[in-house]
Design a protein around this nucleic acid. Structure first.
Lengths: 200, 200
DNA sequence: CAGGCAGGTTAGCGGTCGTTAACCTGAAGG
DNA sequence: CCTTCAGGTTAACGACCGCTAACCTGCCTG
């Protein structure tokens, strides 16, 4: 877990600002001049760093999906022999960290996927699918009475719950990161438990 | 509850197709020619029914927010004297019906709000806020140990859970409407219960 | 039957947007 | 000191898009 201390490159600045703008106003709603202005250069200067506007979105979405999947794989691998319930807690924790720290990316991730070139979209979809399958396996270990279809639905719904972070602090500050994370974690576990509890 | 049997007007056709297209590719990603083609007329013919593209989005969003709020108010009013838990169940059921029957609208509802004119956006926000407050009141009756901020966060998160329906049937059919509705309902109640159970 | 109007059509204007072209500049390196 | 090149700049092009103008055509009504 090497935390970076060096300054972000221009390329990283651009990606960060583009993510924020895309999340705020949609991919088609943001012009390249605007993205350039957000990092202090103007319009076409961006083309020294990216081949086009599409490429920025692609790199953002592939990056998100990849990091989510990589982190989840690591968490599952690290927990060899520990109870399945703890692995699920770890997955939930990782997703919450991501949802709280990178809210614009969470927004983009399920909103602008269709704006990608075919090849990029397929790649992102594949990464997302692997991520979901990882969750489904762990969830079914914890709640064996859940069928596969029900487990997959439950996982998608919990993603919806966890990804609600962009709406939480809208008209005031959220009560503090730790408290919010804990609340989301409890609710996710509660939702899974309720899914596995009954005639599903 | 008068169910309509007469044919939809041209205006209604347009709104329905526009909703689907906007949800699929985003407001800015759909041209008026495309919307026209979807209902069998072409491009500028739409201007006989709407003053502009913005007006279609506005009518869709105001309509959604209004119907959600009206339905919720009715459900709360009808349940005079019954247990708060049952009122919450009724609210959840209503929201699920909506999320399952009008998936494109659910998608639009929290995605394209910022594309509206100021006055329309304020109206929609106000309707949404009233809807949330209604839920918060009922939730706090059922789980009195929840603070107001926590209850509001919980409500938003459960909305995220229930609004995940667009992702459920993506690569196959969902297991049947009734089963899905029941699963979502259980998970929502489980999430609320978990939110109210602990040191929140 | 005359007239009006609802509801279409096509042509085209004006603005915006992504992208390219051509040019500039300051710092690094032999 | 000259060259190179990374990383900018402004101007402008071509495509697209929302919208308007001008025109057409059936149906309803007095």
């Amino acid at each position: 877990m090497a935390t970076r201390t060096d300054a972000p490159t221009r390329r990283e600045q651009i990606l960060k600002e583009a993510a924020r703008l895309f999340a705020d106003r949609g991919f088609h709603g943001v012009g390249v001049d605007e993205i350039g202005a957000a990092v202090g250069i103007s319009g076409p200067g961006l083309y020294r760093h990216f081949p086009g506007k599409d490429a920025m979105l692609a790199e953002l979405l592939v990056g998100i999906s990849g990091r989510l999947l990589t982190g989840a794989k690591r968490r599952v691998a690290e927990a060899d022999g520990v109870a399945a319930g703890e692995v699920l807690d770890s997955l939930i924790e990782g997703h919450i960290d991501f949802a709280l720290d990178d809210r614009p990316l969470i927004t983009l991730h399920d909103r602008e996927l269709d704006r990608l070139r075919d090849s990029d979209r397929k790649l992102v979809r594949q990464l997302q699918r692997q991520y979901v399958e990882l969750w489904v396996q762990v969830v079914r270990e914890v709640y064996p009475e859940l069928g596969e279809a029900a487990a997959r639905s439950a996982v998608h719904s919990v993603f919806g719950l966890l990804n609600s972070t962009p709406y939480l602090g809208r008209g005031g500050t959220l009560p503090g990161r730790g408290v919010t994370a804990e609340l989301l974690h409890r609710m996710a576990r509660g939702a899974f438990a309720a899914a596995g509890a009954a005639q599903g």
